[in-house]
Every structure is written in structure tokens, then in C-alpha cells.
Amino acid sequence: MVIDLDRCTGCGACVIACAVENNVPPAHEGTTPRTGLTWMRVVRVDDGRSFPDTRSVFVPLMCQQCDHHTPCVSVCPQNAVEYDEETGIVTQVPVRCLGCRYCMTACPYHARYFNWWDPEWPAGMEQTLNPDVSTRMRGVAEKCNFCHGRLQAARAKAAAGSRPLAPDDYQPACVEACPTEAIVFGDLNDPRSTVSAAASSPDTFRLLEHLGTGPKVRYRSRSAAVRESLTRNSVSSEKEQVHG
């Protein structure tokens, strides 16, 4: 997945699409930005200058789908997090999760969320739930799986047509919802895919590349200042204005 930050307007359509697709319940009373279930969120990063000189960039942030040695897979005591060798997707399985939150401690991208409350839908809203994604219960962790419900449906459809799964068969909900087409999704291993072309452009970068987690979500921006501000070490830069 490649996200073009120059195209992102911060509208939040991807966040909504993600929540609807994945049966994320409405926030419980008392939820804070730090206790909500936001598999996908858009972070606004300012350059620290005051108005009117300030420059902001919107960063859509979800599970970065790290490569083989993900920080979260190895730490889970009961194999509730897996690395899918076939797709390269890091999958979270809430039905296996015990709720120890070790994976959340391990994730440098803070892309994992805990069900602090029992999920509740207003009466009638449960009719709108997506049947391809199971709802979760209180006390388990969850995160972006690149819309696994859509992947499963696409696989079934391909099987019904007696053909292998094609790259265009499925797109995550956020990709589909983005009005500026800022997110490109596809097979990074296929050198002819659009996403590979986007990923090989010199203005792409990954978050916290130094950690060696090898995220499969790439970001791109033509602005060197944006690239610089998102790749430098947080801890060495101070007084950054952050709005979640």
C-alpha cells in the first residue's frame, strides 16, 4: 500500500469507511482519543510554526503491515497474531486474544487497539453490520487486517469462477473511499503493479525505517520538508505540535 500525502486532504472518509466495513462499534461514552477503536486514523502533523506560517500534513495511519519480523507477532503468547506468508498481511485474530496487551506495547506505530468496553450498537444499527467480519468482545485487541472480510469474499468469488485470485479482485475499504485516490493498494511483489511503481518512486518513505520492521505501507510526498519531518527521530525533535 502506498499513501500519497500530497493528495490527502484529511477528510476522514477512509476512517469512516474502515469503521463501517469492519464493524467497529460507535465510541462508548467516556472514550478518549487514546481509548477509541480507530483502526484507521488521520493524524495532523504541524511543522511547529505558528499561524499563518504553519504548514500541516495529514498522515493516514493504520497497521503498517511489517515484514516477517514484526514486533507484534512474536510477542503474542497464544498465537493470536499471525504473519500470513501468502499475502504478507499481519493478521490479528480477536477470537484467540486474551487481552494481555503485550502486542500493543510492542507496536511502534500504535496501530493496535483494545476493546476497553463491550461493543454496543444503537437499537437497529446492528442490522447494518457487515456479515463478513465478526464483531469483537470486550477485553481483546484488534487492528487493521487490510479488510480480511473483503479478501475472503474475493477468494470465494474467484473460486466460484474457477480462476485464481487476481490483484484487482479486492481493495480495502479505505482505498475505495478515498475521494482523492491518495491510497494505492496492490501486490508489492508484482513488479508490474501500480503499487510497485508508486513504491519505487524516490519520494516514497516508510515510518521508522531504522527500526527494521519493514512496513509494507509506504508514504510519499514531493515535499522534502514533509519527508524530513516524518522520517526524523521523534525523540530528537522537540515541541512538535500533535493533533490526533
Partner: peptide
């Protein structure tokens, strides 16, 4: 979060996890 699932660690252990 789910104390009743505590036995999962014994039944489905991930041997790579320190926990």
C-alpha cells in the same frame, strides 16, 4: 482483558513469546 481465556496460553502457546 479476558481472564477466562487464560488457558489459551497453555493450549496454544507461541514458543517465541517471552510472555
Amino acid at each position: 482483558g479476558q481472564p477466562l481465556r487464560a488457558w489459551f496460553t497453555f493450549w496454544h502457546p507461541n514458543v517465541h513469546s517471552m510472555l
